[in-house]
Amino acid sequence: MNNDAMGRFLNELGNELAKIVGGNPEGVFLYVEIGEGWVGPSIFKDEGSLVRYYDLSGNGLTDILFDIWYAGDDESKRWSVMEYSIAAGKFEVTFKYPEEVDVTKPDRERRRAALRARFGDKQVVYPSMREGAFELKS
């Protein structure tokens, strides 16, 4: 895959993120863990004094993320973590690869660490649970 095609996929990702957050993507941060047959994205937006989490139901984000993941011609060079942010009208993306982070073992601390690195100690606000939902505790 050439850089122009990857750039188009990453731009499409930014457009989808803008839709999810209601139009203005400034301050958006996307953290993604991915592997064969699964993807775990989390979208956050810096709103000044707090960071808001956005629900991912009902959008085309998953397909775009798989397009980006499969874009590499060499299967051994597929990333396992992507961090994508938008600031000053431009996107910035970093990838981590399986030799850097093993996402086959679930670990919520990786996402928390990425949030702390990006936003410091700002409060993260999650939406209220939907009616009929329940929380599992260990």
Rank of each mutant, 00 (worst) to 15 (best):
E109H: 13
E109C: 14
L13F: 09
S138V: 12
G27V: 01
P25D: 04
A117T: 12
L136Q: 05
E75F: 14
A133I: 00
G132I: 05
I86H: 07
Y97H: 01
I34H: 00
G89K: 15
F91K: 10
P98G: 05
R111A: 05
E47M: 05
I64D: 08
A88Y: 03
P41Y: 00
S57A: 15
W38I: 13
D55F: 12
F29S: 15
P106R: 01
M6A: 08
N15M: 12
A87G: 09
M82Q: 08
P106L: 11
G35P: 01
K122V: 09
L17Y: 04
T94H: 10
A88Q: 09
V21G: 13
R116M: 07
I86C: 10
F95N: 06
E12G: 06
I64H: 11
A133F: 12
F66C: 04
F91R: 02
I86M: 15
Y54W: 09
A88P: 02
D46I: 00
I86G: 06
V125E: 03
F29R: 07
Y54T: 03
N59Q: 13
E92T: 12
E12I: 07
D102R: 01
Y126I: 11
P127C: 01
R78I: 14
K96L: 10
M6T: 13
G35D: 02
G58T: 05
R108S: 15
E131F: 13
I34T: 07
N2S: 06
F134R: 01
Y70D: 10
Y84I: 13
K19P: 02
G14A: 15
D107S: 11
A114L: 06
P25I: 02
K45N: 05
Y70E: 07
W69Y: 11
P41V: 02
S128R: 07
K105T: 14
V51A: 05
G132E: 06
G60Y: 13
E109M: 15
P98R: 03
V39W: 05
V93A: 10
D121G: 11
V103C: 04
A113Q: 13
R130T: 04
D67M: 14
E36V: 14
K90V: 13
R130F: 11
E12W: 15
E135Y: 12
R116L: 10
E36Y: 13
A117L: 15
D63I: 08
W38P: 06
E131I: 10
D74N: 00
P41Q: 00
A133W: 14
G58P: 09
V28Q: 02
G40S: 06
Y53G: 06
V125L: 14
Y53N: 08
M82W: 01
I68C: 06
R108E: 11
N11P: 12
G27L: 12
W79E: 11
V103F: 00
A18T: 03
F134G: 05
M6I: 13
S80H: 00
N3M: 01
P127A: 05
W38C: 10
S76I: 11
R118I: 12
G22Q: 13
G7I: 15
K45P: 04
R111C: 10
N2P: 03
P25F: 03
R118Y: 12
W69D: 01
G14H: 12
R52A: 14
V93K: 04
N3S: 05
A117S: 14
G40L: 08
N24P: 11
F44R: 01
P25A: 08
S57Q: 01
K96P: 08
P127H: 02
R130K: 06
D107A: 10
L115Q: 03
F9Q: 06
V21F: 14
